[in-house]
Nucleic acid binder design. Sequence first.
DNA 1: ATTTGATTTAATCAAATGATTAAAAATTAA
DNA 2: TTAATTTTTAATCATTTGATTAAATCAAAT
Lengths: 206, 206
Amino acid sequence: MAKTEKLETADSSTEEKIKEAAAKVFTQKGFAATRTRDIAEEAGINLALLNYYFRSKEKLFDLVMMESLQKFLLGVRDILNDVNSSLTEKISQLASHYIDLLKVNTDLPLFILSEIRANPARLEANMGAKEILLQSNFYKQLEATTKKKVDPVHFLMNIFGLTVFPFVASPLLRIIGEKSKAEFDALMDERKKMIPIWIDAMLKSI
Amino acid sequence: MAKTEKLETADSSTEEKIKEAAAKVFTQKGFAATRTRDIAEEAGINLALLNYYFRSKEKLFDLVMMESLQKFLLGVRDILNDVNSSLTEKISQLASHYIDLLKVNTDLPLFILSEIRANPARLEANMGAKEILLQSNFYKQLEATTKKKVDPVHFLMNIFGLTVFPFVASPLLRIIGEKSKAEFDALMDERKKMIPIWIDAMLKSI
DNA sequence: ATTTGATTTAATCAAATGATTAAAAATTAA
DNA sequence: TTAATTTTTAATCATTTGATTAAATCAAAT
């Protein structure tokens, strides 16, 4: 009771502080490499508090992972289902959306993909995403465009490969290309315009 | 002394057995989630033997990581520096090479990328790769083709994004696309032909 | 002010885990 | 064979780590 009646923003509540710290540490280091003590220290609280609020490392992780998946999918739904935009326009919006999101949350995709590989069961639970995608106007447009020629999954691979992969491989790519964080982000901004053009060219080439 | 004089293939020696087990477990679960006991069990040996041969978990891991990096780069050098092949031919060969490699070692790239993020210092050590790439005939052809128009790093992103990323995201993509391992591999085989065509189309579109 | 319930802490536990040791077994050299 | 060396094992350590407990502190209600 008392908790909800205290006057404090959601951001400053202890529970929220722990969750934010957990998101930061888990995303950076992954589940196995993260110690609950790291999270407690990052949150500036006692270790016991973490278990008091969240019962266990696992429970806290599940929460963080769920919110990470939502962060990755939130805002995409509207783009996918806009009946007034063309396929190319949707691709342009998707690219811009994800590039802006991942400039700020660079290791979000590697975190999600790593943890899903480590524990695929975790994924099955949250697979509303699948339905959202497959029943979307976007997917119908994609199927119509590539009809009978190639599996539309190819173009999922292409869109996400061109958009998300650079962030996944950014530690490597930045060294190879000798790019600062700012220069890398500038490259990614360029891709917002280029990716839709490229995908268009690819669609026409088949 | 005695060890080298025993008549046994390199594959059957205890040392090699441990290294193979380590590669398997580390690649599957990552450094932090791997227990030395897992490796010992996988290798069918006593835990102490692991430390007898390799001194520590870290040393064994470094060895595995080095060989993983080599596996990822080996065989590419020749393709990159073939002065008789066109850029498109090189891209075709690269795509085929990596797709065949990753069909068998699906989680190699996620392993490498995860561990590099976790410990970027490890990368710097093995960065002969950078020189190999940047001084290659391939890179010169790429620079010539995209001259002044776009950063050639864009096309590294594109080539690896189209080729490697599907494997990185395969747990997700296979669920979304409802593909068995065999169907997924068939898709990837299709990409061997399509990726060079796509990259060509992209290069012409700029 | 006192009571009640929520929050936080310090101290500690038990299990897991990387590593070592001392001895046994196997192999090689003499 | 015997001695010396290498390989393997069982037992054990010390540390780390997730979790708990019991007590202290704080806030709100009466």
